[in-house]
Design a protein around this nucleic acid. Structure first.
Length: 654
RNA sequence: GCCCUCGUAGCUCAGAGGAUAGAGCAACAGUUUCCUAAACUGUAGGUCACAGGUUCGAAUCCUGUCGGGGGUACCA
């Protein structure tokens, strides 16, 4: 039990009879923001006093009088308008730390009521190279699963891959027309990726050609509207008109920008002899690709056979990246898996009156919203929403979850709002459906990463670049060690891989989930401040102490050596160590991994201070040496476990 | 038009209605006979976009204004 939980239970007893809103009060007991107010503070006397019509300090007096905390804290202090400040007794800290020393869970309790979660994350389109846009979902989802499991929940990870979309139409078309048989035999993944890119480029080219006059028209139209409005507005337009004009100007600028980029895209093909020849020969490629996709969906024998042949190669490709990220899934049930359920779910929606026809499409409408959710197109094809409903149905039947978490970009919040409302109408009402949304990955220019076209950074290239940059730092630091370099070439390369991947993951996890994320190598690979490297470094320093002191830490843990907390640095470290469980709880309360990263940063900080101020191997006495070794051990294990919950590894030496 | 989000130090960002708003970069000033200086210590830096409101108490909740981003019927 965390110290906070113990405090709450004591307060619960003391509050009995005083109010019937005990839980509300208990929520106002927190770790102190400022050490000078002690370790914990209870803030409920002000609202409670108001409610009871009594002075808050008087209420505080009464509560303090009833509190039995002598074994846990020093005398409570009533401060300011009615805060109760608590300082945990060192003896209690020592007792809890001692328990953690021999506990594999570091004295973090499991939850009383375990739940079953289905966590939907990553979800790349196979057969398309994974890019930087996939990193957030993958990393956050993985961290949530690990953390949920650690506290005793059942977390079922399910990778809802896109294995049934238009990209297969492209590959099918490419395979039938452009395949290099030898290249395919040698390395199917690489060849399929080439085919995808080629067909994609040709489709975009013809699409772009068709779009060109449309864009030009649009620009003329926008120019005219702007001119007309400007004239109408006169010399002194009011505020609202000015705003409208400004909007028209930015719209026009955007359209011009789009035209420019389209023209350069077309020029790239036109300027390439081979590409322009292919483009001319495959003028109808756009519709042909859609036909290949429809044939696949209609179980065309050849296309289905080819799809089954391509799929394993595509899955191997994404598995390789997951292997490097050390991300695993319990299930990988892609869109194709739900193909048979799409028709029936639409029928059900219609039969129950949840959906109806509109403009030839099948739609679900929502109160107060003009936009419906489409579940079947005019041409009979199903959509994203249809698959998601079918998927939810399957998950409910199969896993019987208490909660389903969708770790998906916040731009899809409307989709999930629709999806969840519809699920409620279908009768899925005793399950928590949660869109764990996250901010967009932005480029250096502050614009969202393009998913359809443009130069996206491939995920693998990103990992390589991060590792390469870290490798340089590893070499530089190892060379600069006072007693000479310690790492072999192999060691250095392993450290670079672990630290590099960690840097990428941590940069993402330490950011508040809902805010946008600016992709930057420098930020990801920074070695200072709130970074994985800082924690890994703290961990490595502990390991270094054990190595140099030739410490048998297993023996020490069971030796019954006592922990001493005489210096401020030791006490601060101890207090921080004991708040690991609270940090995990906070992190899970709204699925925010950055709560855990903040905690670990704070812990590593406390350790660094301790490291500077408290000699371990050269401690004044043997007793103190053993105590400090135990603190080092607890710190290392907490850092390791905390990072592990985020999907990040540590290294013994760096 | 409607809906959703964001606006906090020069920069990048934390901040569960609680006390004097915090980190990291960058700046400045220190710390290597000592367990890894990928570190530590200190200084400086703020009208929490603006205006009202609710509250004992607001960066946080509500309303409005200004500014940024996103979404908005047959892509996923």
């Amino acid at each position: 039990m965390t110290i906070l939980a113990t405090l709450k239970s004591r307060f619960r007893t003391a509050l009995a009879g005083l109010t019937d809103e005990v839980d509300t009060c208990l929520d106002l007991i927190r770790a102190s923001g400022d050490p000078k107010f002690g370790d914990y503070q209870a803030n409920f006397c002000m609202p409670l006093g108001k409610k009871l019509g009594r002075p808050p300090r008087e209420v505080a007096e009464e509560v303090v009088g009833k509190l039995e905390l002598d074994d846990l804290c020093g005398p409570p202090e009533i401060a300011g308008p009615g805060f109760i400040n608590l300082r945990v007794k060192d003896a209690r800290l020592i007792e809890q730390l001692t328990a953690a020393v021999t506990d594999a869970r570091l004295a973090v309790a499991t939850v009383e009521q375990p739940r079953t979660y289905v966590v939907d994350y990553s979800g790349p389109n196979v057969a398309k190279p994974m890019h930087v846009g996939h990193i957030r979902s993958t990393v956050i989802g993985d961290a949530l699963c690990r953390t949920l499991r650690f506290v005793g929940h059942k977390a079922i990870s399910d990778n809802h891959i896109g294995d049934w979309g238009t990209q297969f139409g492209m590959i099918l078309y490419g395979y039938k027309h452009f395949v290099d048989a030898k290249a395919y035999a040698d390395n199917p993944v690489q060849e399929l990726a080439r085919l995808y890119r080629l067909v994609r480029q040709l489709v975009d080219y013809h699409g772009g050609r068709a779009k060109l006059p449309v864009l030009k028209d649009k620009i003329t139209q926008q120019e005219n509207v702007l001119k007309q409005r400007t004239a109408e507005a006169g010399e002194k337009p009011d505020k609202k008109t000015r705003k409208t004009l400004r909007k028209l100007e930015t719209d026009l600028a955007e359209t011009r920008e789009a035209l420019k980029s389209l023209e350069s895209q077309l020029a790239a093909v036109d300027g390439d002899a081979l590409l322009s020849k292919l483009a001319a020969e495959h003028a109808e490629i756009g519709t042909a690709v859609l036909q290949e996709t429809s044939k696949l969906h209609a179980s065309d024998e050849e296309n289905l056979r080819l799809w089954k042949e391509f799929l394993p190669a595509c899955e191997d490709e994404i598995e390789r990246i997951y292997g490097r990220l050390k991300v695993t899934f319990d299930h990988t049930l892609g869109e194709s898996f739900y193909n048979d359920r799409l028709g029936p779910i639409v029928d059900e929606l219609l039969a129950k009156g949840i959906a109806r026809e509109s403009d030839g499409a099948t739609c679900v409408f929502f109160d107060g919203q003009d936009v419906p959710m489409l579940v079947r197109k005019k041409d009979g094809a199903f959509l994203y929403a249809t698959t998601d409903l079918a998927t939810l149905g399957y998950r409910m039947e199969t896993f019987r979850p208490d909660a389903v978490l969708y770790v998906v970009d916040h731009r899809q919040s409307l989709h999930f709002e629709h999806l969840f409302t519809t699920a409620g109408r279908l009768g899925y009402d005793d399950v928590e459906l949660k869109h764990v949304s996250f901010g967009t990955v932005l480029g250096d220019d502050g614009r969202p990463f393009k998913t359809r076209s443009g130069d996206t950074v491939g995920l693998e290239g990103l990992l390589d670049e991060a590792v390469r940059r870290v490798a340089a730092i590893v070499a530089e630091n190892d060379d600069a060690k006072p007693s000479g370099s310690e790492l072999s070439a192999v060691d250095r390369s392993n450290v670079a891989e672990t630290v590099g991947i960690a840097a990428i993951k941590y940069a993402d996890l330490s950011q508040a989930r809902t805010s946008d994320y600016v992709f930057s190598y420098d930020k990801m690979v920074a070695t200072r401040g709130n970074t994985a490297t800082y924690m890994q470094y703290a961990y490595a320093r502990v390991r270094s102490i054990f190595r140099r002191g030739d410490v048998d830490i297993d023996a020490l843990r069971t030796s019954g050596a006592t922990i001493l907390l005489d210096s401020p640095a030791e006490r601060a470290l101890a207090m921080e160590l004991l708040q690991f469980g609270e940090a995990i709880e906070l992190s899970l309360a709204d699925y925010r991994p950055n709560q855990l990263t903040s905690y670990l940063f704070e812990l590593a900080n406390r350790y660094s201070t301790f490291f500077e101020e408290c000699p371990v191997l050269k401690a004044e006495s043997d007793e103190l040496r053993q105590s400090r070794l135990l603190l080092c051990d607890l710190t290392a294990r907490t850092l390791q476990k905390g990072l592990e919950l985020l999907g990040i590894d540590v290294v013994d030496q760096m």
